Simulated scan of single mutants.
Amino acid sequence: MEMKVSTRTEQILTVLKILAWVAFFGFAVSAVLFLSSYISGFWNSINIFDIKEDPNLLQLRQENSGLYTILMAFSFIMALLKAIVWWMVAKIIDKIKIDNPFSIEVVHQLEYISYSLFTIWVLSVTGGGFIAWLGEKAGTLNDSWNKGPFLFMAGLVFVISQIFKRGVEIQSENDLTV
């Protein structure tokens, strides 16, 4: 029976894959909590998740259910998109082969991740603006949406995808010359 010896890079990729799955499940649970909190709000006058997150959400839900619905939809979509990004990261780690890391599949996945991060940034800016506008009407709301890092990450991942794309081109040129 032969044991496969894994390199340090393979070990790091394995740890990163585990962390990506943990982040995916964390954001997926967060999305489910937002959705269940919103749905259960129709039957319960007090929702523990809302109060823990921001006490003003309870007041907003009581005063204007339409604006509350929009805010909860933003929160749900943001958590869902973050979960999707981490799911794509876990999948891309599966696709990376140590002996041949540059593939067009990896390039496409990296581009999709960068577009998803850019979408999250756009929604963060939109949601932050909505919360600021809503804060004037309903009192202070918790604007805990970090907007800047998503644009930075989207740009960084897009640059990495272009580097991988060039790696695919060089790799295919080398395969043709051999």
Rank of each mutant, 00 (worst) to 15 (best):
H108S: 03
F27K: 04
K4S: 11
K91P: 02
L134T: 11
E63I: 10
G128S: 15
F42D: 00
E105P: 00
S65K: 15
L176V: 09
D143K: 03
D94V: 05
I18W: 11
V89H: 01
I84L: 11
M88F: 13
Q171L: 12
L71W: 15
I70W: 12
S172I: 12
L19Q: 03
Y115M: 10
S114K: 02
F76D: 06
A28D: 09
S30F: 10
T14Y: 08
F34R: 09
M88N: 04
S65P: 03
E136N: 06
E173Q: 12
V168L: 09
G26P: 06
L57E: 04
I18K: 03
N44R: 12
F74T: 14
L35V: 15
S36Q: 12
S36K: 06
I77S: 11
K17F: 00
E63D: 13
F150S: 05
E169K: 14
L110N: 00
A83V: 10
G41R: 01
F49S: 01
L16P: 00
T69K: 15
V89L: 09
D143Q: 01
K82W: 09
Y112L: 04
L58C: 04
N174Y: 12
F25I: 10
N100Q: 14
L58R: 08
T7W: 10
I170K: 11
F25Y: 13
